[in-house]
């Protein structure tokens, strides 16, 4: 009998040894990531598409994760926030409607089970495409370490009188690629309106990266309709009149190219409408 218990005790101790107590500080110390990158060098950027809503209590915590990622990857991390689903519904307390047809279509397509949820470069991480906010950071890090396969450059030209915006996106293949599609989306920051948070409603919450519209449809347009070899270049231009309710100062253009075969995003770029 005694032997058995010694054996068990030994096993328990063995298990006890296999745990990692982490001491403060818990956050990693981040050096400046961009110091010796030459400006012309193409880097792999990562897009987080976030499904959110102003009635969703955990969504501000999601936005917080996105902000933290911005801090450690200032030039390489881009966010689009789609207000969609049950939590984005409007009522007298939450009167502003941030929902869009494109955002709703993507919400239906990716089927987030809970909010906030995100998609990182539309690639699965641990076999899952739709990710909880706690996993955005490692999924972003994983995508960032990939070799860039495509270069994207955005040129914007905005005429204030007519609210006319022209966007020219130039894509250059750096290697052999699947057929690609390109999406050109408009996002807006600095939007102040009520938001539910874990402690209750925040009346003057600032919504950033809010998806406003696509300039070329939910699923974009063909960039390279066939398999592409390195150094192939193409420029796509669009012209649009901006919606009068948007503040041009706070608008950004986010464009990304995704594989028409796997649906995965291979490169993304962001530019302000007014620099």
């Amino acid at each position: 009998m005694k032997k058995v218990f010694h054996f068990v005790l030994g096993l328990l101790l063995l298990l006890a040894a296999s745990c990692d107590i982490v001491d403060e500080p818990y956050t990693r110390i981040i050096g400046n990531d961009d110091d010796d990158n030459e400006p012309t060098e193409v880097v792999q950027k990562v897009l987080l598409e976030e499904f959110t809503g102003h009635q969703c209590p955990n969504c501000p915590a999601g936005a917080q994760v996105a902000n933290q990622l911005h801090e450690i990857y200032p030039e390489k991390f881009i966010v689009i926030a789609y207000h969609a689903g049950w939590f984005a519904r409007t009522n007298t307390s939450f009167p502003v409607d941030y929902r869009t047809t494109e955002g709703t279509a993507l919400d239906v397509y990716f089927k987030p089970g809970s909010y906030p949820s995100g998609v990182v470069n539309r690639k699965p991480y641990n076999n899952t495409i739709i990710l909880d906010r706690s996993i955005w950071a490692p999924a972003t890090a994983a995508q960032m370490s990939n070799e860039p396969k495509l270069q994207l450059q955005i040129l914007t030209n905005y005429n204030e009188t007519y609210r006319a915006l022209s966007v020219a996106v130039t894509a250059k293949a750096l290697t052999t690629l699947d057929p690609l599609k390109l999406c050109i989306f408009v996002t807006e920051g600095g939007l102040v309106s009520p938001q539910v948070a874990s402690g209750g409603t925040i009346d003057n919450y600032v919504h950033n990266h809010v998806f406003r519209a696509s300039l070329n449809g939910t699923w974009g347009q063909n960039l390279f309709s066939q398999e592409t070899i390195a150094n192939q270049v193409r420029t796509i231009s669009v012209l649009t009149i901006l919606n009068s309710s948007w503040n041009a100062q706070n608008l950004s253009i986010v464009c990304f190219a995704y594989s028409d075969v796997t649906g995965e995003i291979i490169q993304v770029e962001e530019a302000k409408v007014i620099e």
Partner: peptide, 22 residues
């Protein structure tokens, strides 16, 4: 008495996470 431990790799760029949690 029981003891359970979980191993999950730490791949987070923001936090230092314990890989073995008991």
């Amino acid at each position: 008495g029981s003891a359970v431990s979980r191993y999950q790799p730490d791949d987070d760029p923001l936090y230092i996470l314990p890989e073995n949690v008991a």
